[in-house]
C-alpha cells in the first residue's frame, strides 16, 4: 500500500508545524449538491471557511461552502474495489434501461 489509510487521500498530517488540512466542498448553485473542489490549510473552522471562500470562489463559483478536516474523512480502500463496487454490475435491474417498455409512452 502507498501509505496510511486515513483521509480521502494518502496523507500524513502532523500538526506540529503546519496548520491542518481541510477538504473543501462547494455548492455551485442552488439545486446542486456540494462537490469536492480541493483542499487548503487553516488553523480552525472559521478561517478555513474564509480561506475557502477566497480560494475557491474568486470567480463566483459557489453559493455555499463546507469544510471538513481531512483527518475526519474515511475512505474506502482501492484494493477493495472488487467487493465494494462490483456487485452492482450484476444488478442490471437497478438501471432503467433494463426494462423494455413502449417508447411512445414516455416512461
Amino acid at each position: 500500500m502507498g501509505g496510511p489509510a486515513a483521509g480521502p487521500d494518502v496523507r500524513s498530517v502532523s500538526e506540529a508545524d503546519d496548520w491542518p488540512l481541510w477538504e473543501v466542498f462547494l455548492r455551485g448553485r442552488r439545486g446542486l449538491s456540494h462537490q469536492h473542489v480541493g483542499s487548503l490549510h487553516a488553523p480552525d473552522p472559521e478561517l478555513a471557511l474564509q480561506n475557502a471562500r477566497d480560494l475557491y470562489t474568486r470567480r463566483g463559483e459557489g453559493v455555499s461552502i463546507w469544510v471538513v478536516r481531512s483527518t475526519e474523512v474515511h475512505a474506502s480502500d482501492p484494493d477493495d474495489q472488487g467487493p465494494l463496487f462490483d456487485p452492482p454490475a450484476d444488478k442490471a435491474y437497478r438501471h432503467p434501461t433494463f426494462y423494455k417498455v413502449p417508447e411512445d409512452l414516455h416512461l
Binding site: H41, A42, L47, N51, D54, L55, R58
Partner: peptide
C-alpha cells in the same frame, strides 16, 4: 504569513 492569507489580503 501563510499562502492562504496571501490570497485573503489580495482580496
Amino acid at each position: 504569513p501563510e499562502l492562504e492569507e496571501e490570497v485573503a489580503l489580495a482580496n
